[in-house]
Amino acid sequence: MKLMTGNSNLPLAKSIAAYLELPITDASVRRFADEEVFVEINENVRGEDVFVIQSTGYPANDNLMELLICIDALKRASAKRITAVVPYFGYARQDRKPGPRTPISAKLVANLITVAGADRVLSVDLHAGQIQGFFDIPTDNLYAAPVMSADIQARFSGRPITVVSPDVGGVVRARALAKRLDNAPLAIVDKRRERPGESEVMNIIGDVAGRFCILVDDIVDSAGTLANAADALKQSGAEDVVAYCTHGVLSGAAVSRVDNSALRELVITDSIGAQAEAIASGKIRLLTIAPLLAEAIRRIADESSVSSLFD
């Protein structure tokens, strides 16, 4: 097999390549003067099983086009099988029609990746599980929960842990993590979202007084939800609050909001290339999912079980 990457997250691609002890395919992914994306593969990939590693975070449209053009270049170079490895699947939050005359952009992106020539998709913590059904090709949705639970047990073992979902929609994700933490108690933040990017906490469902609370979510974007949830948990008597989120989008003033919040720490994975501001923050820590992705890639190439990674 071969590994290829766009420009969205080179450090993650290099870590995956190091784990698999494979070189990254020699390819040029660059821009013309008018910002058109151009891809040229500088080695033979005919008959190869190729994995294209490319997150579609900011700038989402540029990174998505890079992915599509990489896939097209591989298809025209006669690669045997092309797997799009998309650690962070952009547009995933547009998975339904929230109102009349609105798009389902996650389905559109799934169509684009399929039509470009991908034979398979590998992603991590899709925002909504039904996105797997948007693809007409095999799709593997990996979970960061094993990586997070190992980190929590190493750092906070012995603390009175309660896993907290920042909204009702994230309960399944929070319960899965709580199960890995010896069936830790579960709490839910009941919130009302007035408009995209803004949320108001209403109340806490569950007992958090004197507990070490771990907020768990798939995406942290503006960080408003986490900051409000941390404040509400503290007001309800929580001993301390730590947040674990898979995808650190961290747009706008998110890093500043985290720094000034009641959160003791925000832990994100390297599914998206970390911003310099986030790296410099004293409250934000990075966990790598490179071994998880690399092992899944190895198993797909070997035609062995991927789901057994989470047993």
Rank of each mutant, 00 (worst) to 15 (best):
D119S: 10
R81W: 01
R30E: 14
S55V: 09
N63A: 04
A296I: 03
R30V: 14
S261M: 00
N141D: 15
G129V: 06
A118G: 11
D62M: 05
Q235A: 15
P146M: 07
A294H: 03
L10C: 01
T269C: 11
A73N: 06
L233C: 08
M148F: 15
E277C: 05
A27S: 15
P87S: 11
A230W: 03
V258I: 15
V216C: 01
A73E: 07
A280L: 02
I131E: 04
L74H: 07
L177A: 10
V45Y: 10
L112H: 12
M148E: 11
L67F: 07
K75I: 09
A278T: 08
I137F: 01
F51H: 14
V201P: 05
L64Q: 06
A253L: 09
P98E: 13
E35G: 02
L293K: 05
I53C: 03
S305F: 10
P160H: 12
A262F: 14
A229K: 03
D302G: 10
S308N: 12
R285G: 04
V85Y: 01
S157Q: 14
K179I: 12
T25P: 04
R76D: 14
G206H: 01
D270L: 02
K80G: 13
D182H: 15
M202N: 14
V242D: 02
D167T: 00
F156W: 08
L215Q: 02
T246L: 05
R195A: 13
R155Q: 15
T5D: 08
R101M: 12
E21D: 15
E66N: 11
K234A: 15
L181P: 02
L142E: 06
D136Y: 12
M148N: 06
I131F: 11
E239L: 13
Y88D: 04
G210S: 06
V29R: 06
A60G: 13
E40C: 13
E40P: 03
R211P: 00
N44S: 14
P87E: 07
Y244W: 10
N61M: 12
M148C: 07
V171F: 02
P98Q: 12
A150P: 02
K191H: 08
R31F: 09
V168R: 10
A301Q: 11
L122P: 00
A238R: 01
Y19N: 13
D231K: 11
E198C: 07
R155V: 02
A290M: 09
